[in-house]
Design a binder for these strands. Sequence first.
DNA 1: ATCCTCATGTAAGTGGTTACATGATTGT
DNA 2: ACAATCATGTAACCACTTACATGAGGAT
Lengths: 226, 226
Amino acid sequence: MSLEHILLGLLRQPASGYDLKKVFDERIDYFWAAELSQIYPTLKRLEKRGWARCCQAVSSRGPGRRVYETTTAGRRALRDWLAKGPEIGDERFAYLAQIYLMDELGDLKQTLRFFTVLRDDFNRKLEALRRLERYWVEADPHYPDELPPPDFHVHLTLRMGILSLGGHVRSCDESIRRLRARMDREKHTRPGVSKSTRRKNPHAPPRHKLALRPPDRKSQTPRARP
Amino acid sequence: MSLEHILLGLLRQPASGYDLKKVFDERIDYFWAAELSQIYPTLKRLEKRGWARCCQAVSSRGPGRRVYETTTAGRRALRDWLAKGPEIGDERFAYLAQIYLMDELGDLKQTLRFFTVLRDDFNRKLEALRRLERYWVEADPHYPDELPPPDFHVHLTLRMGILSLGGHVRSCDESIRRLRARMDREKHTRPGVSKSTRRKNPHAPPRHKLALRPPDRKSQTPRARP
DNA sequence: ATCCTCATGTAAGTGGTTACATGATTGT
DNA sequence: ACAATCATGTAACCACTTACATGAGGAT
């Protein structure tokens, strides 16, 4: 479980479950989400396993705080996780599945609308990360070159987030251009409802010429499974 | 559940659970994975709900095939799903979490190794998709402009996959450049084990200057929750 | 004989979400 | 008085994975 290891990493600085939730929402958000209802039991599990220790603390309001901290055994587990290389699961992208099947709507205008919404969403997230980066640049005169190692790694993570989101936005832009080009071509060659934009019979099953297996089937990258 | 809707889309052409598994492994793989043990119960559920119908068929070897097909009610459900806009969950990226916490290893060389492995993995996946695209280009003289709508949407999906994976590879390349630059600088300014590459005390908790909340906290994009 | 592919499934477990329960303190 | 924030948690559910069970037919 990755959440366990992430908590191990964050708890190198003591924090309560409630504190951690804020860290996720305010800073980790763009690559990992976590709910309190999952954080609390995970903390207990870490404690039971000896990877984190807990001490009670008082709060000005509300119930007593349970402040956790990673133990040396916990840090060993964290290092093992980091050292065994990148964990790339088979990520699932529902929006790609939607595009794959969107011929069902039989209307390229809807596909176009879908892509613009998608683009705007990626772009909003991208802007949020860029704001964060700008803030760091302004706050620290020698950002990012002179950063101490922990901050440098945080910086690397943020850069990855910004660059890959930028890639997503550009992907959408390219698709939107292609879509518009195709729609223009159809409008000019046969005005009115063309046979390509609107399905003649919406109940006819779609025929995928392209959905053929590629010739070198065996040489395709197999999914990484542990 | 997205798998339900994906099956609804794929079953516009009749197929058995076993057939569908192959479709996932050979073509859908880069944006959605599915196991047989999940596909079979889902098919039953779709049938019970009236979104798919099933008919028995014989097989030359092995038990009888249960061939499913989407019903008109099922296609309505599929269209509703597609029409209600992109489904962008809070994707989790364990490898970004690993980078975020990798200062724990206290050795930039290991971070660099991590990034090169990551880059190679993205690149292998990218090459697989490019091979697929090349195959389509060669097989069809007027690819992609003259494609019928279903194939055009499959094409759009593949392009999105290729472009965003390309973005990931470039992100890794940039990080690798930055890492090398920093390592070079350290080597020249203070030869031997420098205080930036190696942690003096591996048990000291890391201090994150950058892990501060940005000034415009409230204006950050909230996660989309339905 | 033994293994691979075809073809169906079940059962147990994991990682995560949604909804609910509780109660103190502070601000409007 | 009412809502928001602080702070803890539980219970039920959901999507998905791993491991297991079964058995026919063809290939080595």
